[in-house]
């Protein structure tokens, strides 16, 4: 009797776990099959390497997503450049420098940061960060890639901080003790012993933060101007893949080339985030092995 019950529960949990895999496969195949019809009319080379996206054109329709891919990478890389040093410094502080009391307050605060709705961050981008950037760089307006990067950095920080901190904490205490016993200062211990030992975990943290930044929609939609032209610099407007989908999917007539092409954009985005997250996962597991 007890065995049967045990088995049933085992089966139930297996199904639950399997369900997630099915959802993932379902989403992937939906994206693939819905985007295939687009390529009956659009040359795939043109789709990937043309910079002109104008499906709703007055004169000539064109479906090129290069400008969006470049935009997406610009804001993402920009976000990482800002969030990487800040995130690691915060993680090192929390794991090694901060006292018990400070840590108890600071950790939940970092976690709360992750819970701020993206639309609120986008709003801050319009009314605060944008004007500030315009002032610093002497621009007429602050709707540009830098603005998006700053906001995405804020959104990626919690992920980077908490995972890097875990990585630093999982470095065996013996390393630290050995370093200190050899006469290294605490600063030298953190920078030359602990961070190098935890480096794969830290890299994984940044990759996960990057995955978060690539997929973020509302914030960049609000703060980057969304001009579809090929971005000229970090101080000009950009339009990411996510904002294009968000703007256009609401009104596109079903089962048209435009509709299928948007799913094509979604597919490209999915593949990029999938690769980033998978790399992060592989690196993270490597780290776990080293630590063990």
């Amino acid at each position: 009797m007890c065995r049967i019950k045990e088995r049933l529960i085992h089966g139930l949990f297996f199904l639950n776990g399997f369900f997630v895999v099915i959802i993932l496969l379902g989403i992937f195949s939906l994206l693939v099959f819905t985007s295939i019809p687009a390529f009956k009319e659009i040359n795939i080379i043109e789709f990937l390497f043309s910079a002109v996206w104008n499906p709703d054109a007055y004169v000539k329709h064109s479906y090129g997503i290069l400008a969006m891919i470049v935009s997406t990478f610009m804001v993402t890389v920009g976000a990482l450049v800002i969030a990487f040093p800040l995130g690691i410094a915060t993680a090192a502080y929390l794991s090694d420098v901060a006292g018990q009391r400070t840590r108890e307050i600071a950790k939940p605060v970092v976690e709360i940061l992750a819970g701020i709705p993206s639309v609120v961050i986008g709003f801050l981008g319009i009314v605060m960060v944008g004007p500030l950037i315009a002032k610093i760089f002497h621009l007429h307006n602050g709707l540009n890639a830098v603005n998006g990067s700053v906001l995405l950095a804020v959104m990626a920080l919690p992920t980077i901080i908490s995972i890097s901190e875990d990585a630093l904490n999982s470095v065996p205490v013996s390393y630290e003790e050995a370093s200190l016993a050899l006469g290294a200062t605490p600063w030298q211990t953190i920078v030359r012993v602990k961070i190098p030992a935890a480096v794969s975990g830290i890299i994984a943290a940044c990759m996960l933060g990057m995955g978060r930044a690539i997929g973020e929609t509302m914030t960049v939609l609000m703060a980057t101007g969304c001009a579809p032209a090929m971005p000229e610099s970090f101080l000009g407007p950009v339009r990411t893949m996510t904002s294009t989908i968000a703007i256009e999917l609401g009104e596109v007539p079903y089962n048209t080339t435009h509709y299928y092409a948007l799913f094509g954009v979604g597919l490209v985005l999915f593949i990029i985030t999938f690769l980033v997250n998978m790399t992060a996962d592989i690196v993270l597991h490597k780290h776990e092995k080293i630590v063990k």
Partner: peptide
């Protein structure tokens, strides 16, 4: 316009924006 918008036009979310 009777033609296409400049691709450099910022695409805003609403009138108020």
């Amino acid at each position: 316009l009777k033609g296409d918008y400049s691709p450099k036009m910022n695409r805003m979310n609403g009138n108020a924006q």
